[in-house]
Amino acid sequence: MAVKAQVVEDWYVLVRVSGELDAYMAPELRETVEQVLDGGARWLLIDLSDVEYLDSVGLGIMIGAAQRASEREGDIAVVCTRPNVMRVLEVSGTKELLNVVGTVEEGRAKLSAARDKAASQAGRGEG
């Protein structure tokens, strides 16, 4: 499995994952996500397009990332294109929580809308 993270447009982090996301490989994703969040990121886009297998361990890492991002008024989105991976997300009932979308562009748009909303609420709070 490979995990690569990059800051995009100066405001969100794109984490691309490939291979089988099971208990053996998941620590690599956990470490990357923790580094990104510890570094202050609030907006995270996890791309699972090249992930061939997902189980509850990988799911747990993404749920934890969503919770941490939410605590700092950010959010995550997850890109998923493979039917078997999508089935795990659907059956586990986490599709909505993780903002699952079909493309990186959709994920970016989802995070951008959430970011605009957060900025608007913060503005109202200040006013």
């Binding site: 189980d55 509850s56 747990g60 749920i63 795990v88 586990s92």
Partner: peptide, 10 residues
């Protein structure tokens, strides 16, 4: 399911 019980749930 809670995070801990996802495995058995699946």
């Amino acid at each position: 399911p809670t995070t801990q019980s996802y495995g058995l749930y699946l």
